[in-house]
Measured scan of single mutants.
Amino acid sequence: GQVHVGDTTYHFPNPEEARKFAEKAAKENNLQVTQHGNTFKVE
Results as ranks from 00 to 15, higher is better:
N14G: 07
A18N: 00
R19K: 12
E16F: 06
K27D: 06
E43K: 05
Q35N: 06
N14Y: 05
H4Q: 14
F40T: 03
N29V: 06
P15T: 14
K20R: 12
T8A: 12
P13D: 14
F40Q: 03
A25F: 15
T9R: 07
H36I: 14
Q35D: 04
T9K: 08
N14I: 03
V33M: 08
T9I: 15
Q2I: 15
V33I: 11
T39D: 10
Q35V: 12
T9F: 09
G1P: 11
K24G: 08
H36R: 06
V42S: 02
G37A: 05
P13W: 08
V3W: 01
G37S: 04
V3L: 01
D7R: 09
F21I: 00
E16K: 04
Q2A: 11
T9A: 06
K24V: 10
T39F: 10
E23T: 07
P15R: 13
T8Q: 14
V5E: 02
A26R: 01
P13N: 13
Q2M: 14
V5I: 15
F12H: 02
Q32E: 08
Q32I: 15
A22G: 01
V42L: 13
F21R: 00
F21Y: 07
H4N: 08
N38E: 05
E17A: 10
Q2R: 12
T34L: 08
T39H: 13
G6S: 05
R19S: 05
A25T: 15
E17M: 08
T39Q: 10
G37R: 03
D7T: 12
Q2K: 13
V33H: 02
F40E: 03
E23A: 06
H4K: 13
Q32S: 13
F12G: 02
Q32L: 12
G37V: 03
P13I: 11
K27G: 08
T39A: 11
E28H: 08
K41W: 15
T8V: 14
E28T: 07
K41L: 15
A26T: 03
R19G: 05
E28I: 09
F12R: 00
E23M: 10
P13S: 13
Q2H: 13
K27N: 09
V33K: 00
H11E: 07
K20N: 10
N30I: 04
F12L: 02
G1T: 10
V33W: 10
A22F: 01
P15E: 14
A22H: 01
V3E: 01
V5C: 10
T34I: 13
F21S: 02
Q32T: 14
F40R: 00
N14F: 05
P15S: 11
V5Y: 13
E16A: 06
A25S: 08
E17H: 04
N14L: 04
K20Y: 08
G6L: 09
V5G: 01
K24H: 12
N30S: 09
K27P: 00
F40I: 05
Y10F: 11
V5D: 04
T34R: 07
T8L: 14
A22E: 02
Y10T: 03
T8W: 11
G1N: 09
G6D: 06
V42T: 04
T8K: 15
P13Q: 12
K27Q: 12
N14A: 04
N38I: 05
Y10H: 06
V42R: 00
V3I: 02
K27A: 13
E43P: 04
H11V: 10
P15L: 15
T9G: 02
Q35F: 06
V5W: 15
K41E: 09
H4Y: 12
H36L: 12
K41H: 15
F12M: 00
N30T: 05
G1H: 13
A18T: 00
Q32W: 10
V33P: 01
H11T: 10
V42H: 03
P13V: 10
Q2V: 15
E16W: 07
F21A: 04
V42P: 03
E16P: 00
K27R: 12
G37Y: 05
P15D: 06
E43V: 11
N30R: 06
P15Q: 14
R19Q: 09
A18V: 00
G1Q: 05
K41D: 07
P15G: 09
E17N: 03
E23N: 08
N29Y: 14
F12E: 02
E43Q: 11
A25Y: 15
E43G: 14
T34S: 10
T34H: 09
R19M: 07
L31H: 06
V5Q: 04
G37N: 07
G37K: 05
F40D: 03
H11N: 10
A22Y: 01
G1E: 02
E23G: 02
V42F: 03
F40H: 04
P15H: 11
G6T: 04
K24Y: 11
N38R: 02
F21C: 03
F12P: 00
V33G: 00
A18H: 00
V33Y: 09
T34Y: 12
G1W: 15
F21K: 00
R19P: 02
Y10K: 03
K27S: 11
A26Y: 02
N38C: 05
V5K: 04
K20T: 10
A22D: 01
K20M: 11
H11L: 12
T8H: 14
K20W: 09
H4F: 13
A22M: 00
Q2W: 15
A22I: 02
G37P: 01
Q32K: 14
K27F: 12
Q35A: 08
N30F: 08
E17T: 06
T34D: 04
A18C: 02
H11C: 12
D7S: 13
F40S: 03
P15K: 13
A25W: 15
F21H: 04
V42D: 03
H36D: 13
H36G: 04
A22L: 02
V3D: 00
F40Y: 10
T39M: 12
V33Q: 01
V33R: 00
V5T: 04
D7Q: 11
T34N: 07
R19L: 10
F12C: 12
T9V: 15
V42N: 03
H4W: 13
T39E: 12
K24A: 14
H11Y: 15
E16Q: 07
